[in-house]
Amino acid sequence: MGKKVLIIDDSNTMRKIVTRSLRQAGFDFDAILEAGDGQAALDVLAGETVDIILSDINMPVMDGIEFLRQKQADAKIKDIPVVMITTEAGSDILDEAKSLGAAGSIKKPFTPDQIQETLGSLL
């Protein structure tokens, strides 16, 4: 069965860039699902199974940190790896994300090679 990815970002532009970069990095997902914030992502995950999640941190409604917290509390989805894609490189926020189970992080701006390097070991 092919793999599925969920991209969480409040910017439609960034979701399109991440989608394009995944393809340029050589990933051939069966489905690329999108959500505009953490709550919308939880709604998607209530009805879909995905293999990996790429999430922004600073978002309205529910940010990436609260999304990680909610995901960790849900046995059905807690083991799905999450990679943070964020401008918040090197900050305390990323340490918090890691403590809540984030599997890795990619700093914006990024290249397809960086996507490949980070996701390659998780899929």
């Binding site: 910017s11 532009t13 964020t86």
Partner: peptide, 30 residues
């Protein structure tokens, strides 16, 4: 950004320029 021709200032333009500012601010913050 979108790899498609955009001919008027719409939500896509606002979103793209907003994301541009977000990335610049994030780098300076770092």
């Amino acid at each position: 950004f979108l790899m498609m021709e955009v001919t008027e200032v719409d939500d896509d333009v606002k979103d793209a320029i907003g994301e541009l500012a977000n990335m610049v601010a994030g780098s300076i913050k770092a």
